[in-house]
């Protein structure tokens, strides 16, 4: 049962009402499963996704929906960066350097 911490950055936290929390997920759960859990808990998250593209990071790098989560993973939901209205990240783009 992987336990992962989730961070809601900037405007995303306005929609969830909190900045971070932990989720315990079934073995084999993926990033998509986690997002579905979050969307179910916070229906307003769908509203965010209509407004701007949500970026999902897992341990500091872009997460793919099919990525399997492991115990201790750190996932973050981010709005576009402050100067980013013209920025189109490439597929391999990552915010950080990973752990």
């Amino acid at each position: 049962m992987p336990r992962v911490s989730v961070r809601y950055l900037a405007a995303v936290a306005d929609y969830t009402g909190r900045k971070e929390e932990e989720f315990e997920l079934p073995d084999g759960a993926t990033v998509k499963d986690l997002l579905d859990t979050i969307r179910e808990k916070y229906p307003r998250v769908a509203e965010i996704e209509r407004r701007f593209p949500l970026l999902i990071l897992r341990n500091g790098v872009n997460a793919k929906p099919e990525d399997r989560l492991v115990d201790g993973d750190r996932v973050a939901l981010l709005p576009p960066v402050s100067g980013g209205s013209r920025f189109k990240p490439p597929a391999e783009y990552s915010y950080g350097c990973g752990d």
């Binding site: 709005p79 960066v81 402050s82 100067g83 980013g84 920025f87």
Partner: peptide
């Protein structure tokens, strides 16, 4: 620096608060 790292701005103005998503 303006476009890549995760840095977010919340602007407090006389007419309210605004999230800044870009220029």
């Amino acid at each position: 620096v303006k476009h890549e790292p995760p840095i977010f701005k919340l602007e407090h103005r006389e007419d309210g608060d605004y999230w800044v998503f870009g220029d």
